[in-house]
Design a protein around this nucleic acid. Structure first.
Length: 366
DNA sequence: CCCTCGATCAC
DNA sequence: CCTCATATCGAGGG
């Protein structure tokens, strides 16, 4: 494979930055975007916050109550998540970014990869100029900042964009890869979260330099074929996955918190039906069908349980999905009489584009 | 190989 | 003190 030049663009504190965009008056003050669970007035967690709020120790994932305490001396704003807004802004920005790459890959709502190998003649210097233009364009057209990583592959570009935030630009040239990676914590490798990091620490591995001393055999023994191989290559900064547009999503899900914990299906059903309806709406909006329906139950101890079923025929019928959700939840409650449920969800998977035939029902009575 | 389920990641 | 959404993997049963 010839040397590639890959760019990873990460929009800074995206949800909060979108909110700043539509509320220029609060710019410069702490802003916290919250997921309110609806259980009590203030219950829920922080989704994202701007850097002013981070100065006070606010982080994604902490409770809203805690964030309010941390910010009680300030004129902070707390807003509920407004996904529709962020998706709108995201779509516009992605269209803009797309124009700069030979190929383009959107990853989630706030990040994207661009392969600029051909358009820059494989020049990192030139790519850096492209990145500057992207940053200027984004600021001018969308009043938004981003952090960019430029490197020989997606793995390194992503780690690089994470290196300097917000409003950063980090370039890792092929000859710099080893020195760049060596001191970083293994947790900086995408796919290495708390659990895998803990396992690695058991093996006395903290940095990527440490990781690179383990041979492939031990990694595969410890983490399985797939992850083991991935870690072996990641430690060396190797990744040959192409930048390519994502195909259709493969699942849709909705989850929400019950007003109070319960084991009673009757107490769960109204919410479960709402979720089934909402996720089915998403399915039909996308003109798709599903062949698997599942329910999620999160118990009072926060343990997560799934139950799903594959259908003989694809469906997008709300009544079918509702009915199956109910049956699956009943089965789960029956199988686990001790379960005290806190949150429930509905998940649709094995998706396909609808062909125009609503479902098989139209053939039943000809 | 198909199905189901839990685990993990990361948004 | 506890949100939401998605992708992917591995195990285990058939």
């Amino acid at each position: 494979m010839p040397t590639r030049v890959i760019m990873h663009v990460d929009l800074d504190y995206f949800y909060a930055q979108c909110e700043e965009l539509v509320r220029p008056n609060i710019k410069g003050k702490p802003l916290v975007v919250c997921v309110y669970s609806g259980r009590t007035e203030e219950s829920g967690v922080v989704s994202t916050c701007n850097y002013e709020a981070r100065k006070y120790g606010v982080r994604a994932g902490i409770s809203i109550v805690r964030a309010k305490k941390l910010l009680e001396t300030t004129e902070a704003t707390f807003l509920p998540v407004n996904r529709a807004l962020y998706e709108l802004v995201s779509e516009r920005i992605m269209e803009l970014l797309k124009t700069y790459g030979d190929s383009f890959e959107k990853v989630g709502i706030d990040e994207a990869y661009l392969d600029v190998s051909a358009s820059t003649n494989a020049s990192f210097k030139h790519a850096e100029e492209v990145a500057s233009r992207i940053k200027q364009g984004l600021l001018y057209q969308e009043q938004m900042t981003c952090s960019v990583g430029i490197a020989p592959n997606k793995l390194l570009a992503k780690i690089a964009s994470d290196q300097t935030k917000p409003n950063g630009l980090t370039v890792v040239r092929p000859e710099e890869v080893k020195a760049f990676l060596a001191p970083l914590s293994v947790g900086r490798i995408p796919g290495v979260g708390k659990k895998i990091e803990e396992k690695l620490i058991q093996l006395k591995v903290r940095t990527i330099a440490d990781l690179s001393t383990l041979n492939a055999t031990i990694l595969i023994e410890t983490f399985g074929m797939n992850l083991g191989n991935y870690l072996y290559l990641a430690a060396r900064g190797e990744d040959d996955k192409p930048v390519k547009e994502r195909e259709q999503p493969t699942q849709f899900s909705r989850i929400a918190t019950l007003k109070r914990n319960t084991h009673e299906i009757t107490e769960i059903l109204p919410l479960l039906y709402d979720l089934a309806t909402s996720v089915t709406l998403k399915l039909t909006e996308k003109n798709m069908t599903c062949r698997s329906v599942g329910v999620i139950a999160i118990l009072e101890d926060l343990s997560i349980h799934n139950k799903s079923k594959i259908l003989e025929f694809p469906t997008s019928e709300e009544c079918v999905i509702r009915q199956l959700s109910k049956e699956l939840m009943e089965e789960f409650l029956h199988a686990m009489p001790s379960a005290v449920v806190r949150r429930v969800g509905v998940k649709l998977s094995i998706l396909a584009m609808a062909t125009g035939q609503a479902d098989i029902s139209q053939y039943l009575d000809e």
